[in-house]
Design a binder for these strands. Structure first.
Lengths: 326, 326
DNA sequence: TTGAAAGCGCTAACAC
DNA sequence: GTGTTAGCGCTTTCAA
């Protein structure tokens, strides 16, 4: 196996110095056209590819961007990642995807690894919104928080309160006893969606009943268990608003298990459900522009990487009521 | 912002040479205990973290592993990736996830990027099984093909033929006109599952009818369109065997659109479906051990990375019939 | 415009 | 056991 050609090989073959080759590869501007051509020819002949490790060491920057999310199997996050990926790749960066499973330990471990790898930047949906942004500032790595806020860094989120109000209000049109299953309240998505739920109740002149609120973990089994608890209540809710897609699926399973007529309880989800899970379109959901959310985050991150140094910015993306219960 | 401490800073503070620090950080063995302690103390005090770029350059090896798959939103692949990730991370490697969208162009682009990044190794589910393994051999990067074969490298696949035979045979118990929607035949999963389908027909003494076979692209819309075509046939099939989960969902949607009674056509999928898509468990599927597949691939890759240099190995993982049509 | 030479931060011979 | 030193492959002053 022939060892990979290096810069000096190209230089020798082209009859120029390594500095010239480097210039050609980076900014063609200040090199004579004939030399440029010779270098390009030598490069092609040797099949030269730059060594990103050496370049990174010298330039003190990697061309890898880290993405830290709680759950790769959640379509919301996969679409989000696609949004980041597409934009970032156009700019020559590679994406390292890290899955925290909604646990602070895994998150911390990945963050350390990413810092060690000197990633050029980081997009993160933190497990807890109180996560220590200081750790990044220290190392000077640009960070963008997405979906969930983090203090001191650029942030892109959904308008959780408005979205939750819209969904809950829709449920309240045909039910007065509406329950909610939220994600962890240490996340902004969890707590803000709860706020929206409460505000909708208040707007409808209804009291907040603590027994109708269950905090879960954004997982399918979590939603299942939470729904079971709600269904065991002496005075059952007539509708349940679930904080995300997986918990809605879990709640659906619980309802099917407990009730003879699953339609007796109206279900709603902050995130869209796959068609097959709700073929008749009975479930109220929001259209969440996850791909755009990712693109926006990537855009802000690239700006930071390219040197933008203004104060932390915040972008809030609106959602839209998607389907309506009959 | 204080610049990040480097090895020489630790060495100076501990009053030893950089070589000693390096030894402590790598193989503590040959260093006197008291020196080890001094180094560790200095390291902690400075908050030293090694520079992976410099280390990689010197060791001629990165601690990043690339994973190239056709579709991150497919649960089969997300579970597979989790399997790889868990094992690889235990060994100190980071995972770069690349999504090819089932297109050869994206795949090629990612492969180039990964090679540039000098990843330590690569796990790939190739878009076409004829993909050029030579490109990797040239650069000497260990490669493991997973789910779909690739010549000349370690491979982990499912037993597609047996699985397809099992599913098709089950359908044939209650239907004689069984159609199939396959993935691209340039993939081994596509062609082998078709072979299994044909063999099951033959075993049942039935002819292969070309009009009952549609090649699609493993996507939901692809499955939808293919099913529409099958449903438009003068002599409709009584059952449809879908090559993967997304196409089964698409076929389901098509059936619901065209037929008054969706249960009039039996559906089967090579991969499992989410509970919500089939609450009554009517759809025949296989249990595919995707997580284990990933772990196996990771295991073989790590062996290669750690220097194993034997001939290419092949592991075939069995599947199991999961649910039965009533 | 081009080249010579000095490192980026680390590891691995080699010497002591 | 420990230190000295020479690079890994590249970019970037600094001179010419």
């Amino acid at each position: 196996m022939a060892p990979r050609a290096k810069l000096s090989d190209v230089a020798r073959l082209a009859g120029v110095s390594t500095a010239t080759v480097s210039r050609v590869l980076n900014d063609n501007d200040r090199v004579a056209p004939d030399l440029v051509e010779r270098v390009m020819k030598a490069k092609a002949e040797l099949g030269y590819r730059y060594n990103s490790l050496a370049r990174g060491l010298r330039r003190r920057a990697n061309t890898v961007v880290g993405v830290v999310i709680p759950d790769v199997t959640n379509p919301f996050f996969t679409d989000l990642v696609r949004g980041i990926e597409d934009l970032v790749r156009e700019n020559g960066y590679l994406l390292v995807l890290c899955n925290t499973d909604e646990t602070a330990e895994k998150e911390a471990a990945y963050l350390e690894l990413l810092i060690d790898q000197q990633v050029a930047g980081l997009v993160i949906a933190p497990v807890r919104s109180a996560v220590d942004a200081a750790a990044f500032d220290l190392t000077g790595i640009p960070v963008v928080a997405v979906d969930r806020t983090m203090s001191g860094v650029d942030t892109v989120t959904l308008d959780n309160v408005r979205g939750a109000i819209a969904v809950t209000s829709r449920l309240l049109e045909s039910a007065s006893r509406v329950a909610t299953i939220t994600g962890p309240l240490v996340t902004t998505t969890g707590s803000e969606r709860l706020i929206g739920y409460r505000r909708a109740l208040r707007d409808a002149g209804l009291p907040f009943e603590p027994e109708l609120f269950v905090e879960a973990d954004y997982s399918e089994p979590g939603g299942y268990l939470a729904a079971k608890r709600l269904l065991a209540l002496p005075d059952r809710p007539q509708a349940i608003f679930c904080g995300n897609h997986a918990m809605a699926l879990g709640a659906m399973r619980a309802i099917a298990e407990v009730l003879d007529d699953p339609d007796a309880i109206a279900l709603a989800s902050f995130e869209p459900l796959p068609w097959a899970a709700d073929p008749r379109g009975r479930i109220v959901t929001l259209a969440v522009p996850s791909y755009e959310l990712g693109q926006q985050a990537a855009r802000m991150l690239l700006e930071r990487i390219h040197g933008f140094d203004g104060p932390a910015r915040t972008v809030v993306v609106e959602t839209e009521l998607l389907r309506s219960a009959p």
